[in-house]
């Protein structure tokens, strides 16, 4: 949890506030700590990389840096759809490496108080692995799943990447 939620002090509320970037995947809303996000870019040409896990879409040229792109839909075993004009790549720094994540749409940056974060429910219906959920945020009309991408690439995942060799 600590890694995903860097605390922001706010004078207004006097409590712990965090800022999240919210994005959509298959009509569900997710949130990710704003400090993890480097930039949000439109889709561009992706070069396929052979012999990688299916959710690795390939690599892109981000101003001279080559970074891997992961399709979050595929990663979470959601139905694959065509990219449209709302599709975005969120470039984030995960365990010290820049990576891009393809999401359906990026909506806004929201501020929430840490108290609003509830532990993830024990049963998750969609394919998101339990461990990369940092929590759930229940605000009046919306339900936000807070993701911890660092956990997404924990031992299991890295093993997978190195196993490819």
């Amino acid at each position: 949890m600590e890694t995903a939620l860097t605390k922001v002090k706010s004078e207004e509320f006097g409590g712990e506030l965090i800022q999240l970037v919210s994005f959509n995947l298959e009509k569900e809303e997710y949130g990710i700590n704003v400090l993890m996000v480097r930039e949000i870019i439109r889709m561009l040409n992706i070069t396929r990389v052979p012999n990688t896990p299916h959710y690795v879409e390939g690599v892109i040229n981000l101003r001279g840096k080559v970074i891997p792109i992961i399709n979050l839909r595929k990663k979470f075993d959601l139905m694959d759809t065509e990219y449209d004009k709302r599709t975005r790549i969120m470039v984030m720094e995960v365990v010290g490496e820049l990576m891009g994540f393809i999401v359906d749409e990026v909506s806004e940056v929201i501020r929430i108080s840490e108290k609003e974060i509830q532990p993830p429910p024990p049963v998750v219906s969609s394919g998101i692995e339990q461990e990369c959920m940092a929590g759930v945020i229940n605000q009046a009309e919306r339900l936000l799943v807070l993701l911890d991408l660092e956990k997404m690439f924990t031992a299991d995942e890295r093993r997978l990447f190195s196993n490819v060799a």
């Binding site: 990389v49 052979p50 012999n51 690795v56 080559v66 490496e97 820049l98 890295r158 990447f161 490819v164």
Partner: peptide, 14 residues
């Protein structure tokens, strides 16, 4: 030559 980063560093043939 640009590195592919550590996540994709072990691909055979690349």
């Amino acid at each position: 030559i640009k590195s592919l980063g550590k996540f994709l560093s072990n691909l055979p043939g690349i």
